[in-house]
Amino acid sequence: MIDKIKEMFGDRIVEEFSDVESVNNYRWYKTPQDQPFGIRKHSLTEYEVNLLEIFVTPLPAYYLQLSTEQTMWKQLLFEGTQPDSKSPLKPSRILQFRILSKDADQELFQEAIENMLSDDLIFVWKNTYSLIVIEPFKDEPISAQQFQGLMQTIESDFFIKAVVFIGTAFHTFQDSVESFEKEARIFQSFLSLKNINQVYTLASSFPNYLLSQMDDDDYNFIRNHIFHTIEPELKDTVKMLLKCNLNYSLAAKNLFIHRNSLQYRMDKFTEQTGLDVKTIPDAVTAYLLLLKN
């Protein structure tokens, strides 16, 4: 549908309301597919408006009617406005939510997040599926692990897939703003890695990010070289052992083998690859070589 609309309205239409100017000067709608778009206000005739609203719905007010704080954050984050030193904004951490399914109820999504975290959050919707949440600095913020559970809860309430990137918590709000741009860019590349997380942090996604920067051919070359003679079963064994943080008893239990058999397999692994996962550098190498499918 959006393509048809673009055809009709040409350059009077925009699809992102990333700056305050576009919020005020455009009339905002979303298609039945949840795709938002804005059309320059003064260019629309009443007839066009009536016609449009048969097919598309106006975007709800909470996207567009922003509080002073929301407006300030929006300008800071998306328009590069420099924070001034007397700004009333607080040091914060920035959470970037991305809704990956259609048909989400954004208003209740926002309510769910308020009930997950606290009621002093600032919400800035970038579009109908990207929500930026500014969480004022807390001494004991919710951990990534707790987020994991809360995201599953949201999933089972809304029947949608959603992911979150947890930014770094900063003591000063200048730092929060400065790191946002970089965090946003890195989050974007985490998303394209198609790994299975619902919760991303800089730390937890670092290994995957590192691999995404590496040439596939080189990676495969190195892997094939090191795993040249290895039996496939041994790879699963090592994966499990690493997953169990080198706890042999636990890994053996999960693999349904005796601890001695695990030891025996690991000796074979070392023989065949030269890697001894009891040392940290070799464990890191093995981990990275087993991370990709």
Partner: peptide
């Protein structure tokens, strides 16, 4: 669509909304 399949899910790391009481947690869906 998932929401029209008439199913309910419980997951492994399942959390409750910390700021809602038990009643509201159950009512939210």
């Amino acid at each position: 669509a998932p929401k029209d399949r008439d199913i309910a899910m419980v997951f492994q790391n399942y959390a409750l909304y910390p700021h809602m009481n038990v009643y509201d947690n159950m009512a939210f869906g």
